[in-house]
């Protein structure tokens, strides 16, 4: 039995220790906003925050997660879907198919948390998530918009 703090709620899941956190989140906890894309920490579709750090949950066994750690998924990024990045994503119409965007948003939110004023080069080197539709330039524009607005600092 593993015990987690997900989006501020303590949950218990009965899974073997080597189950990836991603699948515990998706299947046991039932939060499907976090996506499976590769299973080998390459694409970033499964990105969640663990104590504020962007983490690829497909390759992290539940045994590595303690009850003290604060896990945040896309569903918990903001209470009302109005995190500055979520608003910027809508304003810039970032998503195409949208499948990678939960991971993109979580990676971007962690980036701005640690570096509120990233340069374009910072964004390009930090945002390594894969999008096959081709939203990279819109992702970058939305992040720069939020960074420039200072909205993250006020939060």
């Amino acid at each position: 039995m593993a015990k987690f703090n997900v989006n501020g709620t303590m949950v218990e899941v009965a899974v073997p220790d080597d189950t990836p956190l991603l699948w515990a989140i998706r299947e046991q906890i039932g939060l499907t906003g976090t996506k499976y894309g590769c299973g080998v920490a390459q694409c970033g579709a499964c990105t969640v925050h663990i104590d504020g750090v962007a983490t690829r949950s497909c390759s992290l066994p539940v045994s590595a997660v303690t009850p003290e750690m604060k896990i945040v998924t896309i569903e918990g990024l903001s209470p009302d879907g109005r995190h500055p990045l979520q608003q910027a994503w809508i304003k810039h119409e970032v998503p195409q198919c949208g499948f990678c965007q939960s991971g993109m948003l979580m990676a971007a939110a962690a980036l701005l948390q640690s570096n509120p004023k990233p340069t374009e080069a910072d964004i390009a080197s930090e945002m390594t998530n894969i999008c096959r539709c081709g939203t990279y330039n819109k992702v970058k524009a939305a992040i720069l918009d939020v960074a420039g607005s200072g909205a993250m600092g006020r939060g």
């Binding site: 939060l31 906003g33 996506k35 499976y36 879907g81 994503w89 949208g98 965007q101």
Partner: peptide, 21 residues
């Protein structure tokens, strides 16, 4: 015009085939 299907792609609510229950 803005797409009709953006909002749910930013908050995890959009259901893809993989997410069906």
């Amino acid at each position: 015009l803005a797409r009709l299907d953006t909002a749910d792609k930013t908050n995890g609510k959009k259901i893809y085939g993989m997410d069906l229950k």
